[in-house]
Simulated scan of single mutants.
Amino acid sequence: MSSVNLMAREVAAKIVFYGPGLSGKTTSLRKIYETVRPAHRGEMMSIATEGDRTLFFDFLPVKVERVGDCSVRLALYTVPGQVFYNATRKLVLQGADGVVFVADSQPEAMDANRESLANLEENLFEHGIRLDRFPLVMQWNKRDLDGVLPVEVLRKELNPRGVPELETSAANGRGVLDTLKAITRLVIKDLRAKRIVPPPRPTASAQPAGLEAQLTQHLQHRQQPGAVASQPVQAGGPVPRVAPVAVMPPPRVEPTPIPAPQPGPKLLGAASALAPGDMFDHARAAEAAFMTGDYATCVTACTDAIRRALAFAGEGSLGQQAFLLRVDGADLLRLQGLGTQQHLRVDDAAFSLYVMMQVFIRLNAVGLPNGE
């Protein structure tokens, strides 16, 4: 499911490239990665699977157009095509906002295309999503080969719904970026329909037009009860006389003594309130360091807590653990970069607390740790 960062005014959406084995999913993502400017992409992380050139997953944040005053960032994934990796495909598909189905255009691959499309519909249904109501783009791949099936045949067999379809050749990159644009448009349209995108910030046009109108509004609010409003003066007419209004001095009010604060229970901060038991001390230490201005200690405590929290996802690299918990890999990369800096600012420490709380939220969502 897409996420919204209200502070950064950013909407993150997840798109999965789905299809049978060796259909061109990985090649498509690699072409996108090579085309996107380095400033607009994150690190591609992958784990190869045996017997299939498809990656376990690709993590590729790509910044795209804005929606209102929010920017949209895409996380692109592939899934393994082999049948015995269905559990992995189902896990990668969780939380997707759109799917690109990469079909192999060769005649001998038609049965695998049908099986993979049926598997996509089944896995989405287990996540409570109907394929006919989900953003989907069909990518007819390998159109550069000889003897491929006509598009009309592929459409009849695999696209009875009539979703957007594009002919591609992932080997040379032809049509791949057009496919990404098509699914991005569908995802953004779906986000707008679901009202996931926050409303735009108020602009200066919402204020009264002109300085005179603003002063008039200000004076109306400042007008005291009982004051005599000025009357319009007609040209050439007598000036009306206004009786002076007696102004009574305000009554003297004795200041009320403020009682001294009484000792009571110390409230938890937001991070420590979300922290599992094993990370509670780290969260409190991070919050205490932030309040005292020790931003380096805050970042260190957050980084240590995050590593311990991700370990609950099982053995593997930090990227694998983050993927399984659906933690933003770009945020983790930025947090790792903060550890190499000598002078840290308040916004660096605040960002570290934000990432740590996001990890704690993901742990709570999946029921980890389970207390055993």
Rank of each mutant, 00 (worst) to 15 (best):
P80K: 10
K266M: 08
G162A: 02
P369N: 01
A273C: 05
D294S: 13
A75F: 03
S317A: 05
S46L: 06
A311F: 15
A275D: 01
F59T: 09
L22D: 11
T35N: 11
A296D: 13
R185L: 15
Q223A: 02
K31N: 00
A112L: 14
Q231A: 07
G81I: 04
I196K: 03
A288M: 00
L325F: 04
M44F: 01
L186K: 09
T78D: 02
P249S: 09
G277H: 08
T297G: 14
R30N: 15
I196A: 04
G21A: 10
L325C: 01
A204T: 14
A330W: 14
V62K: 12
R155N: 14
L268D: 02
R345G: 12
I188E: 04
L338D: 07
W140L: 03
A209E: 15
I361L: 12
Y295T: 06
D144T: 02
E34L: 03
A285S: 09
P261N: 07
N159Q: 13
A209Y: 13
E315Y: 12
V359D: 01
S3R: 15
G173T: 01
G319M: 00
S317T: 07
P61F: 13
V197W: 14
A273Q: 08
L166I: 15
G21R: 08
E50Y: 08
F56T: 02
I32M: 07
A283W: 05
G367P: 00
P80L: 10
R252V: 15
V176H: 10
P265T: 13
D146K: 15
G293M: 09
D347K: 14
H40M: 04
M110P: 04
W140N: 03
H218E: 12
E115C: 10
P259L: 12
N364E: 05
E121P: 02
E157M: 03
G81S: 05
L124R: 03
M291R: 07
F84Y: 03
P261V: 10
R89W: 05
Q217V: 12
E157L: 03
G98Q: 03
L158R: 11
P263M: 05
A171Q: 12
Y18L: 00
R326Y: 12
E152N: 11
T88P: 09
P276R: 00
S23Y: 07
V346A: 13
R307I: 04
V64R: 03
T179C: 14
P200G: 04
A322L: 08
R73H: 00
V4L: 14
D178F: 06
L338H: 10
A309I: 05
V67R: 14
Q224G: 08
Y354M: 05
N123G: 11
L324T: 13
L120Q: 05
A350G: 15
A365Q: 03
F59P: 04
V245Q: 15
D294T: 10
I32L: 12
G42H: 05
L131Q: 02
A260V: 15
G51K: 09
L344E: 07
T54H: 09
W140T: 01
N141M: 06
P249G: 08
R195A: 11
P61M: 11
Q342D: 00
G337K: 02
M138A: 04
Q82G: 06
V151Q: 06
S46R: 07
F56H: 01
